[in-house]
């Protein structure tokens, strides 16, 4: 059974299609890049998979079941914008996650925070934007989920932290789980991807194994993407 199956999915805002006729199958044990320009429909697709929006047409199945309460238990989602209460201290957020998610590994979260030199006594509001993003990523990667969905995880972080984040993603995903990473920063991330999905104007323009695509086009994914969607 596929981990994620999307059938004839469309999402319309008023009269405009944000997503049109999306069909996609993803299996376990893969890191998938969801790549597209700003406004291509990446975040809409991710919100639909997370049951935060209702499709206009079509359906999304997670392990064969429609998205809903059950799928939320097995999807660990990093949204584009934080939803955490900034008045909380990091250790309070950890406890909150432990109460809320059965699959949250608090020891692992503490270890990762320590690796990143983050003080778990600090209030989120006292942290820089980059530090807050790191905390959020640690929370998401410390769940033992079946599917991790990271919406623009590299947005505001420096190159050294970006490398640490990629390593964290690599070393924390296992053969039973998959990771979907949405980004427009392709060159930073392409080396860790098994598969890429190009999304443009609400439609899937291409889905391929990453190395096969490099071999076929004799170019980097970033380069191929630029060629396809030249402004």
């Amino acid at each position: 059974m596929e981990l994620l199956e999307i059938k004839d999915l469309s999402k319309k805002y008023e009269n405009k299609y944000a997503l049109k006729n999306i069909n996609l199958k993803l299996s376990s044990g893969k890191i998938i890049g969801l790549l597209g320009k700003n406004g291509a429909g990446k975040s809409t697709l991710i919100k639909l998979i997370n049951d935060l929006l209702t499709p206009t047409d079509g359906e999304i199945l997670i392990k064969g079941n429609k998205v809903g309460v059950e799928s939320k238990k097995i999807i660990s989602y990093l949204p584009e914008r934080t939803y955490l209460n900034k008045q909380m201290r990091v250790n309070e957020v950890l406890n909150y996650f432990e109460d809320f998610y059965d699959d949250f590994d608090i020891q692992k979260a503490k270890r990762l925070l320590k690796d990143l030199d983050l003080d778990d006594n600090q209030k989120l509001s006292k942290m820089s934007k980059g530090m807050q993003e790191k905390v959020q990523l640690v929370l998401v990667m410390s769940r033992n989920a079946d599917l991790y969905i990271l919406d623009e995880p590299l947005g505001g972080v420096d190159p050294a932290t970006r490398d640490y984040i990629l390593d964290t993603i690599l070393s924390n995903f296992n053969e039973n789980a998959s990771v979907i990473i949405s980004t427009h920063l392709i060159s930073d991330i392409e080396r860790i991807l098994d598969e890429v999905v190009f999304i443009d104007k609400g439609e899937i323009a291409l889905q391929s194994d990453t190395d096969e695509l490099r071999e076929k086009e004799n170019a980097s994914i970033d380069e191929i993407f630029r060629r396809m969607f030249k402004c």
Partner: peptide, 11 residues
């Protein structure tokens, strides 16, 4: 270190 324009498995 890896080049992005050559398949990673080949490197």
């Amino acid at each position: 270190t890896f080049e992005n324009n050559i398949p990673i498995y080949i490197q």
